[in-house]
Write a protein that binds this DNA or RNA. Sequence first.
RNA 1: GUGGCUGUAGCUCAGUUGGUUAGAGCGCCGGUUUGUGGUACCGGAGGUCGGGGGUUCAAGACCCCUCAGCCACCCCA
Length: 415
Amino acid sequence: MNKLKRIKGTHDLLQQEKEKHLYVVNTARKIAKKFGFDSIDTPIFEFTDVFSRPLGETSDVVTKEMYTFETRGGDCVTLRPEGTAGIVRAFIENGLTQSGPFKVFYEGAMFRYERPQKGRQRQFHQFGVEALSLPKPATDVEIISMGQMIIEELGIAKDIKLHINSLGDQESRDTYRKKLISYLSDFKNDLSEDSKNRLEKNPLRILDSKDKKDREILKNAPIYYDSLNDVSKQHFDDVLNGLEKLNIKFTLDNNMVRGFDYYCHTAFEFITNSLGAQGTVLGGGRYDNLCEIMGGNPTSGIGFAGGIERLALMIDNISEKNNKIVVIGIDGETQKIGLKIANELRYKTDFVIETFFGNLKKGLKYSDKINANTAIILGEDELSKKTAIIRDLKSGEQQEIKFDEICNYIKKGNK
RNA sequence: GUGGCUGUAGCUCAGUUGGUUAGAGCGCCGGUUUGUGGUACCGGAGGUCGGGGGUUCAAGACCCCUCAGCCACCCCA
């Protein structure tokens, strides 16, 4: 019979890898909490409309990357390709649009049917935050600074740069769109195939094309900032000002646009060069129209998502500092007391306690393998005396200790 | 979805212009040592050569298809 295999683009997270993911998530959660964000979980799948409407019917994610299927009951559902839409749906559905600021942190698996490569999988993991009913530039600044703080806390800030742009409000966006189309139309025949298509459907996307010719043409393209109306300009200036006050360094990037239709005003990405083509490690922006698009009252929103796999690729292996102790029982009779001692230590100390029953040599070998500091050895001789040998595995020194005193001895010896 | 590179033991990789029984290091198991580990020495297990088809007297090697991984496009976290 042939071997069963993983689905393309999925991964088993083994030991170290899972530890890294947990480290990234826990670090992000810790920082988010400092900003007053609570944790939230929404379903991993939703009615397809929940994603297709806000992301844009023409976006790549909706047109070719979603895992969409019909249920036995005939509903059209989709595995979530991103986190924001589901959270905004929950926000509206639970009647929270009237109850003031809503600040949440989430993390979990996302699904996109893409060609896998480094830092890009079909099932991948993101954490993110969303802040609803908070329209002021100050929130943009806080959100970005939270991203910065997470990256600093993870110890990878030196390899990552913050890029920022403003897409303005709807009016500014329409103005710029027109200007851009009129400029690019003159070069229509010189644009790359992809960009030619985008000229009609989604011209803003041409801005971050990597095609050499496209880039050349774009050098003289109208600048987004110049098309911002007064309100949009003010908002953006306030955000940049706020960042400067907080000493957060950024690069203005007039060509950065985000993939989903729902973004407006502030858009930002934390980008690294160390991961090849998939350089965006955390990105987000403002989405003041999203609530309305999804059938709720008009409510402002802003948030970001971080790629857990990508961040995990940038951090070193987590070193375990937790002291390990192995309780070794030399034969069957020692098992009962061995398990009892192990559990007592687990209740009363914070050490990692493992047990090993079998011959002493193998027990010590195993202790080496898991890098334990201490072995508690139980054998026939000791059993009759109600004692155990406690061996310091680094120095090789050992002592015989009464059962009752093991716990205290361990506490004193290892701090 | 498009293009390029790769796939041999658990891991990292050798394997000549096609030629006998496919190798090494690390890891794993056992022994030297029946109650004292890390070192050393000795031994052992482990492979449908990613899968399927074809060419050939003969294929790990050549050809076709397929699957997976990597890289780039694309997209995005």
